[in-house]
Design a protein around this nucleic acid. Structure first.
Length: 870
RNA sequence: GCGGACGUGGCGAAACUGGUAGACGCAAGGGACUUAAAAUCCCUCGGCCGCGAGGCUGUACGGGUUCGAGCCCCGUCGUCCGCACCA
């Protein structure tokens, strides 16, 4: 009987409608089942989903569906990270309101996501630009402010001259704005800050508990927090000329004190500022340093420049003085803004010393090698044993680390300095001079200062009418919005016109999903029961900022009673990118990118050649790169879903490449996935009538038993693979099972199978459908129906494997002679050592290899391998 | 410079805890069916030698440990990622 080809278009629509009608994926907070929270990083509503989204949500949906089938109460929500600059840019370019642009994009993308058939609870959907969401965020702000977790101060800020906004340190990459790429300038502004640095120790220490995170991400966070143990040592000025009489230096290597030959302070160090007022040359030097600042070119040149102040400080342990220099390489933002220079054991200090002719003194030598430092600083690992020159803190022959510990203790003992732990992590500036963000709920009064908006007056809503495109802050330009009475004294006052960094929005959305209808940021008990997110899935690009901010927010929300836990994400998975070949045409002497949709690939004698589909011109096949508009190597998910169906697209995304690696999108690969779908459809379709008549049970002997063994083994293995997110392996096992089932199924169709084999095939076919259901949910429902089942696979419990069927009675053991495989031994699984040995020695090829002799050794690894050593 | 990950066929990749290297897929080649094409099915597919059975060799490179190494140890080379005037 011929079976028509599977038509995903109709089937997928039909099942999506049914799931929606039956609210199959809506989650009940009251369910007694154990909870499981799966979350993919929510998208920015740019207008269309791209293949990266398809991969992200396909991965998460497998987990969600699998856990649901395993009996968990699964929370799998979706929302929109909807504030941000692209909406303002679009507004300026297309003369459309940011709100309208954003919500239209959300509508379009929601429709696309729905066409993927994801098992999402859409009833919990929200966008961060919804008034209700940012109202709750403002409530959080007020609570954080009251708890002292937010403060306001003047600060030098990173100013992006293109986007005309302030950037957090984390948003400055190589001296440029993370979004605009413009060289960042320094400006002085009054800004709101989160006290994230107060949590530095806990954020660092707690990384050790996150064993469900990739080591790589933990390392990146650890580096970012930048904990370092050191000491702060005061160096008294020999002849103070102003108010400052001591320079405090931070050092992680106080054991090298004997090698100190100068002090270097930052141009912005208080002492430098004091001197600058009286010394025009220094003022000029400092101005030059500030001008170059942290821009990329300055970092590249990295030329050490210094200015001798003429001042001297007293060495704390020796009878000598050290000159005080201002150095362009000393950062005010790290440590104390002052360091002692030890040229012998620091390459940067050595370069500086050589340039300005300062002494180079070894504080230690390598064991048995007293060559003094010349052009290369001596910087052995802290674990290496070295010989110290000066024995001031009891330093002799010991490791660097030992010496550091001793020195710190010694300084503390003598009251000459304090051991101190420093972090690179700075407080998080959250003020942005933008319109499309959550307004900061504060009112500035000339008499009362910065007054929080009373909770009852929330939300502070964005005005609908706004003029964008003028430099500066749009809310500040607004004719009326900012003018309000002071909540404290009633006098005329002004609203804060800055809005919050959009990273704030994404720092707690995962908590909001647990009760998005609640008239408070969270329903604390509910949120604490759902959290942490059991499996969070997203791109590695968020390894530092978003995840660190969310970890901070969870702590801050705990402190303010909104949650009761520390770590928001128990399991984290960072997926790889979707990449694609690039194509180029030479036109009028210029090279132009060509979209994959316009390319035909031909293969001739192993050579791949590309042609333009319209003009026929030959094209260059370029490198494989992340899909991007500029290189035109994007494939539109809509086209794929339209052509092959969502299931095929999802299945391809899960096949072949491990999910944490980049996946190369290829037409051939998608077609392969599609062929597999059609093959299953044919096999099940042809056999469906016979299978319906059969009973579903495991076979007891012969081929039926083999079929059952194969299917039960696959059930076990696929479950384990999904638990480990090794979807590519799970897919391979499904292929294997289908390959195994093909012949028995066609025998069933041909009437050549007995009742036992038919029963085993029926059960195996059912297993197969259930196993791929999390990956290809619509197709699975169709097949499930075809097999004569009434309910939906989506609500059917995961199959249990029979332990007896995953173990073979007979096993095949490879037999090696001197470590090289020479044959196999088929033997009872439970055969004991001596039985195996006997069987091995009686094998023909073993006997002929032995030539009548006794083996020197006979190694039997139970159930694995035999090695005969001659 | 510091930190991390990785290196397996033509390609994407498997290989449990040191135990048959290359499962599974893609591409390719050959064949069947067909008036033809599509679709489908069958066979081959790391390299070298051999008619064949089979043998040798092979997981970036050089050593080592082991009955046995893709996996462990030492060294070298290469690729990718993160951080970086961090004291």
């Amino acid at each position: 009987m011929a079976v028509e080809r599977y038509n995903p278009k109709q089937a997928e629509k039909r099942w999506q409608r049914r799931w929606e009608e039956e609210r199959t994926y809506e989650t009940d907070n009251e369910s007694p089942k154990p909870k499981y929270y799966v979350l993919e990083m929510f998208p920015y509503p740019s207008g269309r989903i791209h293949m990266g989204h398809v991969r992200n949500y396909a991965l998460g949906d497998v987990v969600a569906r699998y856990k649901r089938a395993r009996g968990f109460n699964v929370l799998h929500p979706m929302g929109w990270d909807a504030f941000g600059m692209p909406a303002e840019n679009a507004a300026i370019q297309n003369n459309i309101h940011p709100r309208d642009w954003t919500y239209a994009n959300i509508d379009a993308m929601r429709k696309q996501l729905k066409s993927m058939g994801l098992s999402l609870d859409w009833s919990r959907e929200f966008a961060t630009c919804d008034v209700d969401y940012y109202k709750q965020q403002q409530a959080l702000f007020l609570d954080f402010l009251a708890a002292g977790l937010i403060y306001r101060r003047n600060s030098k800020v990173n100013w992006d001259p293109v986007d005309m906004t302030v950037l957090a340190n984390e948003q400055v990459i190589d001296g440029r704005g993370w979004r605009s790429g413009a060289v960042v300038e320094q400006r002085e502004l009054t800004q709101w800050f989160f006290r994230i640095s107060d949590f530095a120790e806990d954020l660092d220490a707690s990384l050790d508990t996150l064993d469900g995170w990739p080591e790589k991400v933990r390392t990146m966070q650890r580096n970012w927090i930048g904990k370092s143990r050191g000491i702060e040592i005061p160096f008294p000025l020999v002849k103070p000329q102003g108010e400052i009489d001591t320079v405090h230096c931070f050092s992680t290597r106080p054991d090298t004190m004997h090698g100190a030959s100068f002090i270097a302070i930052s141009p912005d160090h208080p002492l430098s500022l004091e001197l600058e007022a009286r010394n025009a040359d220094l003022a000029a030097f400092n101005a030059e340093c500030r001008r170059i600042g942290t821009s990329e070119e300055a970092l590249e040149k990295a030329e050490k420049r210094g200015f001798d102040t003429g001042l001297k400080v007293r060495h704390p342990t020796e009878d000598r003085d050290l000159p005080v220099w201002v150095g362009n390489f000393v950062l005010m933002s790290y440590g104390t803004g002052a360091v002692f220079g030890c040229p012998a054991h620091d390459q940067r200090d050595l370069d500086f010393a050589r340039k300005y002719d300062l002494p180079v003194r070894n504080a230690f030598y390598l064991v048995g090698d007293r060559t003094p430092v010349l052009d290369e600083a001596l910087v052995p690992a802290k674990s290496e044993t070295v010989v110290y020159v000066d024995h001031f803190a009891g330093l002799t022959e010991m490791t660097g680390q030992e010496a550091i510990d001793r020195t710190i203790a010694w300084f503390e003992n003598k009251n000459l300095g304090n051991g101190i732990t420093r972090y690179r992590l700075r407080d998080w500036g959250l003020s942005r001079q933008r319109y499309w963000g959550a307004p900061i709920p504060v009112i500035h009064c000339d008499d009362c200062g910065a007054v929080p908006v009373p909770a009852a007056d929330l939300p502070v809503e964005l005005p609908a009418d706004v003029t964008l495109g003028k430099p500066g802050n749009p809310l500040d330009h607004h004719p009326t919005w900012k003018h309000v009475g002071c909540p404290a004294c009633g006098k005329a006052a002004r609203r804060e016109t800055d809005t919050m960094d959009t990273f704030v929005d994404s720092s707690w959305y995962f908590a909001r999903f647990t009760a998005p209808w609640h008239d408070a940021p969270t329903e604390s008990a509910v949120a604490s029961a759902w959290l942490p997110v059991d499996q969070y899935i997203g791109g590695i690009e968020h390894a530092i900022l978003h995840l660190l901010y969310s970890r901070f927010f969870t702590r801050a929300m705990r402190q303010t009673g909104h949650l009761d836990l520390k770590e928001p994400f128990r399991g984290l998975f960072t997926q790889g990118m979707v990449v694609h070949e690039t194509y180029r045409a030479e036109r009028n002497g210029k090279s132009e990118w060509i979209a994959p949709a316009d390319v035909v690939i031909e293969e001739k004698e192993g050579q791949r050649q590309a042609r333009h589909v319209g003009t026929g011109e030959p094209l260059l096949i370029g490198s494989i790169e992340k899909m991007s508009k500029s290189k035109k190597n994007v494939v539109d998910p809509d086209d794929i879903i339209d052509g092959y169906g969502a299931d095929t697209a999802r299945f391809f995304m899960l096949s072949d490449s491990p999910p944490d690696r980049d996946v190369i999108w290829s037409e051939a690969g998608v077609e392969g996935a599609h062929r597999f779908v059609q093959r299953i459809w044919r096999l099940i379709g042809e056999a469906s009538e016979s299978l319906k008549a059969a009973e579903a049970r495991a076979g007891s002997e012969g081929r039926a038993l083999e079929v059952s063994r194969a299917s039960h083994k696959t059930v076990k293995a696929v479950g384990e693979d999904i638990e480990k997110l090794a979807f590519n392996k799970a897919v391979a096992r499904l292929y294997e099972l289908v390959n195994t089932l093909a012949a028995p199924l066609s025998d069933v169709v041909a009437g050549k199978a007995d009742a036992d084999l038919a029963a085993a095939c029926k059960q195996a076919a059912g297993h197969l459908v259930q196993l791929f259901a999390p990956m290809m949910p619509h197709f699975a429902e169709e097949c499930w129906n075809l097999l004569g089942n009434d309910g939906m696979v989506a609500t059917t419990p995961w199959p249990e494997h029979d332990p007896a069927l995953v173990i073979d009675d007979q096993i095949v053991m490879p037999v090696q002679i001197n470590g090289k495989k020479r044959g196999d031994l088929t033997i009872d699984r439970d055969a004991d050592q001596s039985a195996v040995q006997q069987a091995v020695l009686s094998l023909d090829f073993v006997q002929s290899a032995l030539g009548g002799n006794v083996p020197r050794k006979l190694i039997v690894v139970p159930r694995r391998i035999v090695n005969v050593v001659i």
